[in-house]
Nucleic acid binder design. Sequence first.
DNA 1: GTGGTCTAGACCACC
DNA 2: GTGGTCTAGACCACA
Lengths: 129, 129, 129, 129
Amino acid sequence: MNINPTSGKPLYEQLMFGIKQDILLGILQPGDKLPSVREMAQRQLVNPNTVAKAYKVLESQEVIQTVMGRGTFVATHSETRQIDARQLKKFKTQFKELMTEGMYLGLTKNELINLINEWYGGDNSGVKD
Amino acid sequence: MNINPTSGKPLYEQLMFGIKQDILLGILQPGDKLPSVREMAQRQLVNPNTVAKAYKVLESQEVIQTVMGRGTFVATHSETRQIDARQLKKFKTQFKELMTEGMYLGLTKNELINLINEWYGGDNSGVKD
Amino acid sequence: MNINPTSGKPLYEQLMFGIKQDILLGILQPGDKLPSVREMAQRQLVNPNTVAKAYKVLESQEVIQTVMGRGTFVATHSETRQIDARQLKKFKTQFKELMTEGMYLGLTKNELINLINEWYGGDNSGVKD
Amino acid sequence: MNINPTSGKPLYEQLMFGIKQDILLGILQPGDKLPSVREMAQRQLVNPNTVAKAYKVLESQEVIQTVMGRGTFVATHSETRQIDARQLKKFKTQFKELMTEGMYLGLTKNELINLINEWYGGDNSGVKD
DNA sequence: GTGGTCTAGACCACC
DNA sequence: GTGGTCTAGACCACA
């Protein structure tokens, strides 16, 4: 996980993304303890307030859980996490815009679809890069 | 193209997206004249400066071209449509982040592909599932 | 001489530059007759007013001369054309700014000097490109 | 760095030039913090929006970098300082035009070279006359 | 008519 | 504190 303060993206969002990605990649497993706010802040060279905000939003998304006095832990994926309609709508909007950008960068629709196939793993046989 | 002042997204970015989409959908053809800054501002109920900013960024991306004193036109990106390496890198980063979000929202691969088809027609020839 | 309406530079300045360059290259000789305003406008696909403005400024710079009823002619260089102090100051300012830009583009001071040597012709032996 | 509101040149371009020059002259070093938008605006007696525009263009040219919430800094263009082909072409066009002007003003080659030396020190080793 | 620049002043997100 | 966005309204050069 790398934080780039000049990327224009909010630091707390970059932190959130890094943690989510670590979970998806298996680096962080459900139940694992996350570094404390202060420790994470030192590691990533950001303000503790920034880490606290990232943790707070992640908790509201039920990605992590805070246990008072014990720390912050990766949530167990099996819980009944219902899809937030607002989040879903926002995602779809962002997705469409990103696809539009991609086509402007010269990527064809099929290249975009193949990119998705790649990311979702599964059947990658014959997928063009 | 509709501008939503309450969406949280900058108005000028919404304008940019709308114009790019109109071009991709063929509503705007290369060489077509865009509404003048003032006219577009009236149509979309935004300040002319906001439109001017959108136009200027689009021009820097070579999506449109301005002819001083005459107006703004959809670019004819003729032959020299070279892919900007920096923009492509940025796109891939955004793509990765968005895919991570999508997985967390529980979206399947096919749902995403359907989203693309919904917007850009349904010819999937050459795409492997 | 090519006029590019999307370059951002005023069309009348582009015209002026083209004429000056033709003179320096010998394509236009002192005493030669320039195309009429209307003919030049047709050739370059610009408004006659634009050509008229270019001619007017060139005449104020004593580069060309208009003879009422006969047309416009390239001035004879030998006339006592005194250097306009204001023009000279403006030139120096532009020159310094351009050199600064050049250094930012990665050109070294020596490359800039060599570019000048090239343009002023004369002793080009051993000048790096 | 001085801003002259009556020079006819856009104020934001004057700001850009002043900052670039300060960097080339070593007054500003890579990593140095620039005055905040508001402070620079006060110093130069211009509107903060004007400063913001100058900073934004400079950032797009990778001359400076902004860290949201912290400020603006002189870029450390590390190793990947690749010459932008488009910018270089634009530079050469401007250079040609300026040289044409210079010849018309009767400036000699040495006068131009002296102008460069005046601004960027006098080490001419390796330059052929 | 067009876009380009500038000002004044507001509100916001981020750190 | 920082920069980012937006508005309102002005003036200018260019075609």
